[in-house]
């Protein structure tokens, strides 16, 4: 007789598509067999997690059709089951999985569309954060400002792609025609929540580099270096003002 811990490990193997012999041997075999009974649980695990991924990645699902999406999701669930019970947090590395998934190799833009949808999901569920008031910065000496780590609102993602993922996303909303010019070039997007709405917009290269460095936790000086690499005329004072006006900095 296995202990509870061993039994639960055997269930995991049985439910995620590995070996079900251990779990089946612990289950009474009357009426429907142990395998059929375990299949009831397995079916729920896969359909509910696939539904959760479909809710987070609806455009990816629409682009590949639901059957193909279901197959990709099935493979993903097997190797990357959720680490926690909040399903709105499930799928953080689904885009990476798609990028490495051989059957998706003919759709090179698909992983970046998934990254955009993940950024939107992050924005939708991010915790509320109080925006930094302009006076707070004004009270600091210039030398202290340089050493500051400015933090962006937690709903924010800076996303660069060599594909027009924003146009792909728009073309696959309800009522849109689905037509995109894939050769129209890459994008640098800022995705965030404003009020109750998730919004995205294209930002210039230097601003993108600056904000991406801040979003990654970099200090102000480092973020400025990244911005200047992209545009020697980068206007730091103007950019800080813009961040405050956009209520993108948090206290």
């Amino acid at each position: 007789m296995s202990s509870l811990r061993e039994l639960q490990a055997e269930f995991r193997a049985a439910l995620l598509g590995g070996d079900e012999r251990g779990a089946a041997s612990a289950v009474a075999d009357d009426g429907p067999g142990a395998s059929a009974r375990l299949a009831v649980y397995r079916h729920h695990v896969f359909t509910s997690l696939t539904a959760a991924l479909e809710a987070t990645f609806p455009v990816v699902c629409r682009l590949v059709d639901r059957r193909f999406f279901g197959w990709v999701a099935d493979q993903y669930v097997r190797v990357r089951p959720p680490a926690g019970p909040c399903l709105f947090e499930y799928g953080a590395d689904f885009a990476d999985f798609i990028a490495d998934f051989p059957a998706c190799a003919t759709l090179p833009w698909l992983a970046d569309v998934a990254r955009l949808e993940w950024a939107m999901n992050t924005a939708l569920y991010a915790p509320e954060a109080a925006a930094l008031e302009p006076d707070t910065l004004g009270a600091l000496a210039p030398a202290d400002v340089a050493r500051l780590t400015l933090r962006l609102d937690p709903s924010t993602t800076l996303l660069a792609s060599r594909w027009p993922v924003d146009a792909i996303w728009r073309a696959n909303q309800a009522g849109a025609d689905g037509v995109v010019d894939l050769d129209s070039g890459g994008v640098r997007l800022e995705v965030r929540r404003v009020g109750e709405d998730v919004v995205y917009r294209a930002v210039p290269p230097a601003v993108f580099a600056f904000r991406a460095a801040l979003a990654a936790g970099g200090a102000l000086e480092e973020a400025v270096d990244h911005a200047l690499d992209n545009d020697p005329a980068f206007d730091l004072a103007g950019e800080i003002r813009a961040l405050l006006d956009e209520r993108l900095l948090i206290a």
């Binding site: 490990a9 680490a83 926690g84």
Partner: peptide
Amino acid sequence: SWSVTGGAYLNHLLPIP
């Protein structure tokens, strides 16, 4: 019920002996 083993959340109310 239980749902978590080996750090994986199996998204089901699984049975306990």
